[in-house]
């Protein structure tokens, strides 16, 4: 089973809002919420995958009713308490003043920190099973052995046959990394699916293509 964030293909969402919008931050608090999330990440108490999972595992009711940056704030608050950086009492308003932590991101380091490249590609990992043009079938279920666990195989592409179009080498596996089980790198591929393969009679144009970036353990030869 997947979670509420996994919405590719869902019906009923209506028109796309504000298509020509050029404003970066519509409210000051959007900017503050983004900046707090980025700055708090500097403590290394979570990684990008556990942070994504923290948003995905908000209750479906909260996920659906929160705006974008409200999801970010809720996930940040939950992570801060879960990882022991802030206690529940402190979150409720009882924080005592403390000096700036040595790990805190400094203003002077922001430009470099945002330009730093931390690749997700790794030298180690299993040998690739597939090459470009191979036909593959995706796992029909959430491939993560953790119940309700984080995965990058969306429900709409489960159990489908596609074709390998790009090979990216070994990348950190979010299904493992999100749960603190290590990077477990494995080959990452871009897989092309026809609209027909994904949507059957709902396909808008059978020959159009959707590609997804999928890890080797999601795939078997087809």
């Amino acid at each position: 089973m997947s979670r509420i964030h996994d919405m590719g293909g869902r019906y009923g969402d209506g028109e796309i809002p504000e298509k020509d919008d050029a404003v970066v931050f519509h409210h000051n608090w959007h900017a503050r919420a983004l900046a707090c999330t980025l700055a708090a990440g500097a403590h290394g108490a979570w990684n990008i995958d556990s942070s994504r999972h923290a948003r995905e595992r908000l209750t479906p009711r909260d996920y659906a009713s929160f705006t974008y940056y409200e999801k970010w704030m809720a996930a940040l608050a939950n992570l801060l308490v879960e990882r022991g950086l802030v206690s529940a009492d402190e979150l409720a308003g009882a924080a005592k003043a403390a000096p700036l932590s040595a790990n805190a991101l400094r203003a002077a380091d922001v430009p470099a920190a945002m330009r730093t490249v931390t690749p997700y590609r790794r030298a180690e990992g299993p040998a690739p099973r597939f090459v470009i043009r191979d036909k593959v079938r995706t796992c029909a279920y959430n491939p993560n052995p953790v119940k309700g666990g984080h995965t990058r195989l969306p429900a709409y592409a489960m159990g489908r046959i596609g074709t390998v179009v790009l090979c990216h080498g070994n990348h950190v596996l979010p299904d493992s990394n999100a749960h603190g089980n290590g990077p477990a790198p494995e080959p990452l591929y871009t897989i092309a699916f026809t609209a027909q393969a994904l949507w059957h009679q709902d396909a808008e144009n059978a020959a159009d293509v959707v590609t997804l970036d999928l890890w080797q353990s999601y795939l078997e030869p087809a």
Binding site: V86, A95, A104
Partner: peptide, 19 residues
Amino acid sequence: LETILVQKGLVDPDALNAL
């Protein structure tokens, strides 16, 4: 949230502005 992070010394307000 920002107040707690700053009080706890986890976040530098100047870094937030720079971000």
